[in-house]
Design a protein around this nucleic acid. Structure first.
Lengths: 203, 203
RNA sequence: GGACACCCAGUCAG
DNA sequence: CTGACTGGGTGTCC
């Protein structure tokens, strides 16, 4: 009924990193993610009940995207994505906003998987709605907001639109899921950690 | 360079309790406070350097307020205040939050000193800012938070406002000081002790 | 008016 | 290390 000790965690982490799965080995990000899972399960934090999660078909890669911004307007900003195919990436800039971080996470995830069917997990309704709902309307109205003001972060929005149109034209499936932030969702938590780390490094 | 042994502490405590200062004698709370001071000084924990502390004018009573809550939301909750006039009080309730404890400490201290110029020491910025900054704004906006949600613990906040307005109308001076928690600040430590005791008794 | 996110600060505890 | 109670602020959209 209890979780792992710190010692057990680090030993597990080392073990996971040295494992071979087929020809590949686990990334550091995924090893940490797995340790967190084991810890949660052993600690009774997650019930073994069937989870009401979307069923992701075989061959589809799930990616969690997240951003971070210390001192929100204009502070050090980080972005990160973590995928179930074992890949992950992150980066930062010296000045940005929380929403720029979230946008960059998605854009970088898409750029890294141009030919892969994806299931995208975001915690930002701003980015999720931009990608799935608002961009078409903005384009029709010359990138103007509902209240007539220019859409923020237009350059990033245009790039996002470009990437999504390319996927659509190539017939590459893309599905979306909103996940609440900080909800012991292993993929998202790891993306959160990496994004925060990247923001701190960009300081 | 070393502090007191437990034996030394209890002997000191007994000694302090039997002392006469003018016609009064030390309360148990203040005796413990003094012993803690001696211990800290002998242990080299506090430097004998001149401290940058507010100078409290003669006739002004300093009061440290503190709250405690075991198992934070909804657990046994205690409050306490300790004053330099030798008085102190504490109490508890079966269910509360940490912040309710801190609020009750201040409210009870004010109620016990309606006509005394006070210097109030709090470790809770939540309560300190409520009392000195936020209440006026909340009243203007119908007790709504900056993010539009109803202010928590409104009943206690209203009572606090009432007490402070009464003091102001009567022209009774009130000054405020934030002290970091658990910083060998004798008055605060004693209030902390009493609040914890009260919480355990309320269990 | 609503929603999500990013922080900052303090406290209470395990 | 974990979690909760509370407040302030900004970024963004409808």
């Amino acid at each position: 009924m209890s979780g792992l000790t710190e010692d057990q965690k680090s030993r597990l982490l080392e073990r996971f990193r040295s494992l071979s799965l087929g020809s590949a080995h686990l990334s550091a990000a995924h090893a940490r993610m797995l340790v967190a899972e084991v810890d949660a399960v052993l600690g009774g934090v997650v019930e073994p009940e069937p989870r009401a999660e979307p069923v992701v078909p075989d061959g589809v890669v799930t990616i969690a995207c997240d951003g971070s911004c210390l001192a929100n307007p204009d502070g050090p900003t980080g972005w990160a994505w973590v995928a179930t195919d074992g890949r992950s990436d992150s980066g930062g800039l010296a000045n940005g906003t929380n929403n720029i971080g979230e946008l960059l996470a998605l854009i970088n995830a898409l750029e890294a998987h141009p030919d892969t069917a994806l299931h995208l997990q975001l915690d930002s309704q701003y980015v999720l709605n931009s990608a799935t709902k608002w961009i078409p309307g903005w384009k029709r109205k010359g990138w103007k907001t509902a209240s007539g003001k220019p859409v923020a972060n237009v350059d990033l929005m245009r790039r996002l639109d470009e990437l999504l149109r390319a996927r659509e034209e190539a017939g590459i499936p893309t599905t979306w899921e909103w996940v609440r932030g900080h909800n012991q969702h292993a993929l998202n938590e790891e993306a959160d950690r990496l994004a925060g780390e990247a923001a701190r490094l960009a300081r």
